[in-house]
């Protein structure tokens, strides 16, 4: 009885585990090995052109100004873009929550739509809107009496442009989670607070926020993980420019790996990204545990 179930379980698991091991875990480990070599286009032509670099590869990486640039950009995107996304999502969720029952579902759908649009398609529109002279955003700025901004052409503004785009694209996802969490808060809590004479702000501070905490920490975690993997937005909108102001770690990996076929170096970038994510995830979940 037990045996048959054990056998059945492994048979059921076999396709998924095989696929995950062969096409995900295996390559991830292979990437670690590759990252210690100088595997490149010469190696693909003739395997005797391979050298073992060991940790020297990571020393080269740490001396590469472009790597630091990409790291800095990625962190900017994670911190600024991530927090902006969470704040906008929370604000939208609270507002919709306060709206009439009849329009809630409609508004949720509207705010959610950018999430399901294909990123390349949306980026194409935003690129047109960001145009320094004929883009709608600059037309609006000039109309308001402000100087036009070369959003994607000026290194000072390009990352902000990417952030604004990605907030627009992503906040709906987190908003839905917040909204569900808000709707699950028992009504009695507010009634009790109202009887105690709590103001709206106090109700928010002492009822809503604590009840939202699990959802909040989940949203923060997935936002951080997602933001570290920034790629398609800069690939389509700026190609990492101007002056590498929007070069992200994944784009750096793509450039080295798939554009120049510096596979070893690209794999090292990927593993640094991985290590960063592990550290950040562990830190975040530890913070969460402590708060509980």
């Amino acid at each position: 009885m037990h045996r048959t179930r054990t056998i059945a379980a492994w048979i059921f698991l076999a396709p998924a585990l095989t696929a995950i091991t062969a096409f995900f875990v295996g390559p991830v480990l292979a990437a670690l090995v590759l990252s210690f070599t100088d595997f490149d286009i010469y190696t693909i032509a003739d395997s005797s052109n391979l050298r073992w670099l060991g940790l020297e590869q990571y020393r080269i990486l740490l001396r590469d100004p472009l790597f630091w640039r990409a790291l800095q950009n990625t962190l900017t995107f994670v911190v600024a873009g991530g927090s902006l996304t969470v704040v906008v999502a929370l604000g939208a969720a609270l507002a919709i929550w306060g709206a009439a029952r009849k329009v809630q579902a409609f508004l949720r759908t509207v705010y959610f739509l950018p999430v399901v649009t294909t990123i390349v398609a949306a980026a194409v529109v935003w690129r047109a809107w960001y145009h320094p002279r004929v883009g709608l955003l600059n037309v609006a700025l000039r109309w308001a009496g402000l100087p036009a901004i070369d959003w994607l052409g000026n290194p000072r503004w390009a990352m902000l442009a990417i952030i604004v785009f990605s907030v627009w694209k992503n906040f709906g996802f987190h908003m839905v989670i917040f909204l569900a969490a808000l709707q699950s808060i028992p009504h009695q809590l507010y009634e009790a607070a109202a009887i105690d004479g709590a103001s709206r702000w106090q109700q928010f501070r002492h009822v809503t926020l604590p009840m939202l905490r699990p959802a909040l920490s989940f949203v923060v975690l997935i936002t951080v993980i997602g933001s570290f993997q920034l790629f398609a937005e800069p690939y389509v909108m700026t190609q990492g420019g101007p002056a590498n102001a929007t070069l992200s770690l994944v784009l750096l990996m793509y450039r080295n790996g798939f554009q120049w076929w510096n596979v070893g170096y690209g794999a090292a970038v990927a593993w640094v990204l991985f290590a960063l994510l592990v550290v950040v995830t562990l830190t975040l979940s530890r913070l969460r545990l402590r708060r509980r």
Partner: peptide, 9 residues
């Protein structure tokens, strides 16, 4: 003018 190719409409 400071323009990249992507900027030139």
């Amino acid at each position: 003018p400071f323009e990249g190719q992507g900027q030139v409409a």
